[in-house]
Design a protein around this nucleic acid. Structure first.
Length: 810
DNA sequence: TTTACCACTTAGAAATTGCGCA
DNA sequence: TGCGCAATTTCTAAGTGGTAAA
């Protein structure tokens, strides 16, 4: 909304095709997999899977050998001399002229004049003051208003203290929305003026269960602190961690230490003789008990939990109630490092109040530490946003308690992030021109920097800070080693390395020929071995320092946000304007998926995936079969329709005689089971009521009917009944057929989406990289309710973007 | 200039909740 | 009404990038 960049002249980046086969768009997203999946789609509409209909003006076509070929924006090969100039108006971004109009419009709304802002949450209006002035006291109903309207806001008898005395008063206050985005909030300077909160919530003390560890087939009763650690291991049995040798070793080293300390003279010497299964059985039993609780018991437990957490859930920031994020101190457990983390399995110790620093307003009441304890430190630092912090014992990292994602502080920072990425639109042409020039630089540092910038810009690579030996061996752009790329002339690069969270980045693509030559020279440099740094004259710090000279505030990570949002906006142009809501959402999710592929956001395939796909397939065929029966019946009662509606004579794909037989037989099996269950249930009820039971003969009769049906199916004499009342008119049958058609379409969309999302996680890009205003504007344009694409959490996180004008572009 | 530290964002997995279907 | 699956939420590890200290 009130973007800082709006007053400047905005221009669309020009995607030029240089002689050095430069293709100025992120390429990484154009994987062969994606194309193949698209091709498998049999849906109509603009995103039908036809290559020519594909969204990217610059598409990668998998070559016969599976190599991804980089192509220029118009779709032709970048490496071929016959490159067509990209049509500058083809991109979804508006023209310069339109933009300047838009800017004028935005300019006028960028500086918010005092306006009456309607509070959506409670339907009241209030008048916002001019920006820069302090926020007005928030008007809040009932007791709460007493707490908030007071001036000065926080005194010895603080609002929070008052609220915490009577439980949830504080958090039940009626909320009045504070539209911080209508103010021009300064990034520098203090983050808050006053801050009240209730501190942090500690995990409960350990309660021993007394289940022994089995060592060399003998029971060993463990001392409670030892039992606790053994129970941590029992809890991870069945996961990959439990069989990871490093995890086992690290765990056992720490376990042994606890054993030596609390049970001197214990017999436990080797991990391989430890049997945690009894403890695990106990945990499973506990879990089953929890699951078996009645609805009411569950509700009571939930209410009790909420009552305890209530006071920690909210804080008062500058007199406004804000949600706290992770107010819980992390419980002790085993460190689950990702990938090949050398410390995985080590014991994460219990955090004591004495280790915790509380950050709170000077005038606020300091929350009470748990009885018998004191806080490590209390500070009043308003230049930071955290409410509490402590150091964990595994890596010595600091853990912070921050406000929730939907809070004003996080929202402001988010909006700034996207505005910054958006302002890169204005600089990207010059930046690309500059680094393309620098690719030829005789200065090695400059040449490496330009090459790295190309990779960061085109493949959305992370910066790649250096890491120490006691972390997993993962890399980003600047920390790539020679072994992470393989070069194939004239310009093909195979990337294969582990990125953040040890997620594999594996991609084969064409690059600019100069980039390829540079990479070869960096790789084959003097005495370089595979484990040497590819960019040995480059650091993230030096790269970012250079980026700052190109655009204020520009760092390597801004390219990821910029490219993600830009690609997303562009791909959304493939939304079928006249499609159904499901088809529009499919197009939306596909654009989202393109971004996720670009950013390499992966997820592991869930265990039951194949089974789920088979079930969807079965469901689809079953509905098709129903439609087939209806069509057949309709032509029997109205043979004249055959000419008018040739579709009624069309075969249902996949519904073969073999499938029909198997399906009908499976139905018999299912029906028998159902009958038996119903019979038992009914009789149980009758017995409870003291009424006469249904005789078993009745059940046997019904089962005999099913058996006869089964025999007829096997004999090939079975004639299925049409799934419609015999009295139904032709119109009624037609109506039913149309309904089934819609159902089939929906199942097909589900199936395609499920398959396409198998290994790609869409949520990360949606949450962190795609400017939410693009989605909101899309919803307005295509008349899709925002709830269909943003869940409650996302809507809360992106409240600042909800009012984006329908003409807004990234 | 390098290193350590700090504050924050980004990330996938796991846990929990909700919902549709038989 | 219960079950299975999907969606959502929670959890916390693992990044980035700025700055102060060595």
């Amino acid at each position: 909304m009130a973007s800082t960049s709006m007053s400047r002249q905005r221009k669309r980046p020009v995607y030029s095709d240089s002689d050095s086969d430069s293709d100025n768009e992120p390429l990484a997203m154009r994987g062969p997999l994606m194309r193949a999946k698209r091709k498998s789609s049999n849906l109509s509409g603009s995103d039908s899977g036809s290559e020519s209909d594909q969204p990217l003006s610059s598409k990668a076509k998998p070559k016969a050998n599976g190599i991804l070929k980089a192509v220029v924006p118009n779709g032709s090969s970048a490496s071929k001399p016959s490159i067509k100039k990209p049509k500058k108006d083809a991109a979804p971004l508006p023209t310069k002229e339109k933009l300047s109009k838009k800017i004028k419009k935005e300019k006028s709304s960028a500086v918010p004049t005092p306006v009456a802002v309607k509070s959506e949450s409670i339907g009241r209006s209030r008048v916002k003051k001019e920006r820069g002035a302090p926020s007005p006291p928030t008007k809040i109903a009932g007791n709460a208003s007493r707490l908030i309207d007071r001036k000065p806001l926080i005194k010895a008898e603080s609002s929070l203290a008052a609220s915490s005395q009577n439980g949830s008063e504080f958090s039940e206050m009626e909320e009045d929305e504070y539209k911080w985005w209508l103010e021009n909030k300064d990034n520098d300077g203090p983050k808050w003026q006053s801050l009240e909160h209730s501190g942090v919530l500690f995990p409960p003390d350990y309660e021993p269960h007394g289940v022994p560890l089995i060592y060399k087939k003998s029971s060993v009763k463990l001392a409670p602190p030892v039992e606790e650690v053994a129970t941590f291991f029992a809890a991870i049995l069945g996961t990959d961690h439990a069989v990871n040798k490093v995890f086992q070793k690290n765990f056992f080293d720490d376990f042994k230490e606890i054993l030596d300390q609390h049970m001197p003279g214990h017999p436990i010497m080797e991990f391989k003789h430890c049997d945690f299964t009894h403890i695990r059985a106990h945990l499973d039993e506990q879990s089953s008990k929890r699951k078996a609780m009645t609805k009411q018991e569950k509700e009571t437990a939930k209410r009790l939990k909420m009552a305890v957490e209530d006071k920690y859930s909210f804080c008062m920031l500058d007199g406004r109630r804000e949600k706290v994020g992770n107010f819980r101190i992390e419980p002790p457990g085993l460190f689950r490092g990702r990938g090949a983390h050398p410390k995985t399995g080590k014991l994460k110790q219990r955090v004591m109040p004495e280790q915790v620093t509380i950050n709170i307003g000077k005038d606020a009441k300091i929350p009470d530490p748990p009885p018998g304890h004191r806080w490590g430190q209390v500070c009043h630092d308003n230049t930071v946003t955290w409410l509490a912090m402590w150091k964990e014992n595994i890596n010595g990292n600091t853990k912070y308690v921050f406000l929730a994602a939907g809070s004003s502080l996080k929202g402001q920072s988010d909006m700034r992030k996207f505005d910054k990425a958006r302002s890169l639109v204005l600089h990207i042409d010059a930046i690309r021109e500059q680094y393309t020039k620098d690719l030829k630089s005789p200065d090695m540092a400059e040449c490496q920097r330009a090459t790295a910038m190309y990779l960061i810009d085109r493949f959305a690579l992370r910066a790649g800070n250096e890491k120490s030996d006691d972390e997993a061996d993962t890399v980003g752009c600047c920390s790539l080693r020679c072994e992470h790329i393989k070069l194939e002339p004239p310009n093909i690069v195979h990337f294969d390395f582990l990125g953040k969270d040890s997620i594999r980045y594996e991609r084969t693509t064409e690059v600019d020929r100069l980039v390829w030559k540079n990479l070869r020279s960096f790789q084959k440099g003097k005495n370089k071995s595979p484990s040497d740094m590819l960019f040995d004259r480059l650091t993230t710090a030096s790269l970012n320092k250079h980026l700052q000279t190109l655009m204020p505030g520009l760092t390597a990570k801004v390219f990821r946000t910029f490219n993600a949002s830009y690609v997303f906006q562009k791909q959304l142009a493939n939304t079928p304007a006249n499609g159904t809501e499901a088809e529009k959402i499919l197009a939306y999710n596909r654009a989202n998926r393109d971004v996720a592929v670009l950013c390499n956001h992966q997820r592991s395939v869930s265990k039951g995936f194949q089974g789920q796909m088979t079930r969807i397939e079965d469901k689809l065929l079953a509905v098709r079969y129903q439609r087939m029966l209806l069509k057949k019946y309709l032509l029997e009662i109205s043979p004249k329709l055959a000419k008018k509606r040739p579709d009624l004579s069309e075969r249902e794909p996949g519904v073969t005689p073999k499938w029909i037989k198997a399906y009908l037989l499976a139905t018999c099996e299912l029906d028998r089971d159902k009958l038996k269950k119903k019979f038992e249930r009914d009789n149980e009820k009758l017995q409870e009521a003291g009424e006469p039971l249904i005789p078993e003969l009745k059940l046997k009769e019904q089962i005999a009917e099913i058996n006869a049906r089964e025999k007829a199916i096997n004999d090939g004499t079975y004639e299925p009944e049409p799934p419609v009342a015999k009295t139904a008119t032709t119109d009624k049958v037609l109506e039913k057929i149309d309904k089934l058609a819609e159902r089939i379409k929906n199942i097909e969309v589900d199936k395609i989406e499920k398959d396409e999302n198998k290994t790609t996680a869409l949520s990360t890009s949606k949450l962190n990289y795609i400017d939410p205003r693009i989605s909101i504007v899309w919803c307005k344009k295509y008349n899709v309710p925002i709830e269909r694409i943003f869940n409650k959490t996302l809507r809360e996180k992106f409240t600042w973007a909800l009012e984006a004008d329908k003409d807004w572009v990234f």
